[in-house]
Every structure is written in C-alpha cells, then in structure tokens.
Simulated assay, not measured.
Amino acid sequence: MENIYSMLNKNVQKQNERKQPRLSKEEFAKQMKDRREHLYQLAEAQTREVVSSPQKYQQFLDLISRLNYTITNTLLVMAQKPEAVMLKDNAHWRGNKLYINKGEKGIQILEPSGEYQRDDGTFGTNYSPKYVFDASQINTKETLYTAPQMDISNMINGLTFDSSVALQQLDSFDGGKPVFYSPEAKCIYYASGLSPQQLIQGLAREYCYVEFDKQYSNYNREEHQFFVESSAYVLCQKYGVPVDDTRFVNRVANYFSGMETKDIKQELGYIKNLCEDVSERIDRGIYKSQQEKNIQRNDVSR
C-alpha cells in the first residue's frame, strides 16, 4: 500500500498546481482593462461586419428583436454566438436550478459597474467584462425559449392603443401599399380584404412611420424608408409577426456608406429606439386590454 504521507503530498502538489497566483490590485486592474479593450475592439470590428451585407444586417436585426441588450452588447453577442436566443449569467441559471453544459464557452459582454468623474467634472460609466450563457448551452431537456407567435387580438389592441392618428378602411385601393400612413391627413389607410397577417404587418410598419414623423421634423418617406423599415422589421420579429418583404436590407451598404464606426453604432441605436417607442405603447395596450378582460370575467362570475 502506498505510504499515506506520499498520497497526501501528491494531492497537495496537485492542488498547488491548480491554484492561480493571487493578483495584486494593480495587476487585476490591468487585466480588466485589457479585457475591456479587447471587447471594445471586437464590437468595433463587428459594427463594420454587420453592415457589410444584407444577410449580416438582417441577422443583427433578428438578434436585436430577441435580446434586450445595448447595441454594443448585441454586437458582442453577434461576434461570439449570433444564434443566441436567451442569455443569463451562471448565477441566474443556477438560481433556476439549471446548469451549463460541461465545456461550454461563455459569451463576454460589458456590464455597468459604477460611475467615475472626468477631469471636466462630468460623470461617466465604468464597464466590466461579464460572462453570460445562452439557453442552448444549458443541460436540460426543458424548452427554455419559444419563438414568439403572432397573437392577432393582442396586436390589434396594442397597435391601436392611444393612437395619435386616425385609421380608415378603404373599399377600393389604387395601387401602392395596402396599408399606408398619410402625414398630411394624420391617418393610416388600410384596404379591404387583407389577411390578418397582411393587416398587422402593415400596421406595425406604418405606426413606425407615425412615430418617426412625431420625433423628426424632416419626415420623408422615401428618404427614411431604410431606417423606418429596419425598426418595423425588429418590431414584427419581437411579436412573431411574419415579414414578407425584406428588400429594404439590400440598401444597407449604401445607407451606411462613408459613416464612421461610432456613427454606425449611433444610427443602429436610433433604429432600436424607434422600435422600442412603438413597442412600449403596444405593451401598454395589451396590458390594458387584458386588465379589462379580467374585470369583465370577474363581473360575470359574481
């Protein structure tokens, strides 16, 4: 039998080999700075990649619709795991009694970690690298993510809630889009005989034009088509509304041509924000509609 002290010494040696030397405060700060710089460079490179082709751009819009992340973090996720659908850190997965598959590589993003004061007296935000994991990396047979499916009733209630424009049905429609916003009349016109998908898809798009018209004084439908239809696409994807016409993505290279990386990121942020402004109103409308239904059920059951 092996000497007990020999066995103990071997185990101690293995433990010592596995131990990482403790970093000093300065070394740790440098390590974090280097990781941050790497992620900033990765996001910058991915910004150019996103607008390099219609396919990449549409893939990025799909990712925006699934993740509630900043543009920078969405770019980082796309660079590492573009098919991601639901991201949480290890602590949150474990809190739900779900565990990461052995050997899975974490996805690095940047998390706010307090403020700092600049030399001019203004304040900025510090960011620290953080690892998150996708639902596809979790060891479970449980379905963790289900793609949204269009709910006709919810979408009608949400889209028309607190509308700032009128809606009018037209029995005859002389060409053009079967759902169309007129800024002069402050009205969305829609043709008769549309399928629920056509109607809701059209309303989602046109309400994005309405929101753009409210926020910007230089509204021009043709000039701003790419911007608004990008937002409308994200909005539809978020609520599971199929989009038949995605030809707008073919204009991506021309639209972003000559822009600096920071300007591209800013523009992507504006596109995301426009979608979120419409989405917030839709969510309020759906919530209010459900509240009213609950009140009606309670009244009936009394």
Rank of each mutant, 00 (worst) to 15 (best):
Y189R: 07
Y189L: 12
Y189P: 04
Y190V: 00
A191K: 01
S192C: 09
L194M: 12
S195R: 12
S195F: 14
Q197N: 08
Q197T: 10
Q198G: 03
L199Y: 05
L203C: 03
A204K: 03
R205P: 05
R205T: 09
E206V: 12
Y207W: 15
C208K: 12
C208N: 15
C208M: 13
Y209S: 06
V210P: 04
V210I: 09
E211T: 12
F212G: 01
D213Q: 10
K214H: 11
Y216R: 13
S217T: 13
N218F: 13
E222P: 01
E223N: 12
E223G: 08
E223R: 15
H224P: 07
Q225V: 06
F226T: 02
F226D: 04
F226H: 07
F226W: 10
F227I: 14
V228T: 06
V228M: 08
V228Y: 06
V228K: 05
E229Y: 05
S230V: 00
S230T: 00
S230Q: 00
A232Q: 13
A232E: 11
Y233D: 03
L235G: 00
C236F: 07
Q237H: 01
Y239A: 02
G240N: 14
G240V: 15
G240S: 15
V241N: 03
P242M: 15
V243L: 10
D244A: 14
D244N: 14
R247D: 06
R247L: 06
R247H: 09
V249Q: 06
N250Y: 15
V252L: 05
V252Q: 02
A253N: 09
Y255W: 14
F256D: 03
S257A: 15
G258C: 13
G258R: 15
G258T: 12
M259R: 11
M259V: 05
E260S: 12
E260C: 08
T261H: 13
K262T: 15
K262S: 15
K265G: 07
E267F: 12
L268M: 09
G269A: 12
Y270C: 05
I271Y: 13
I271N: 14
K272L: 12
K272F: 15
N273P: 04
C275N: 05
D277W: 07
D277Q: 11
D277H: 10
V278P: 02
V278M: 06
V278A: 03
S279D: 10
E280W: 09
E280V: 08
I282S: 01
G285N: 10
I286D: 06
K288H: 11
K288I: 11
S289K: 12
S289R: 09
Q290S: 03
E292G: 01
E292D: 07
N294L: 13
N294T: 06
N294F: 07
N294V: 07
N294R: 11
Q296S: 06
Q296G: 02
N298F: 07
N298D: 05
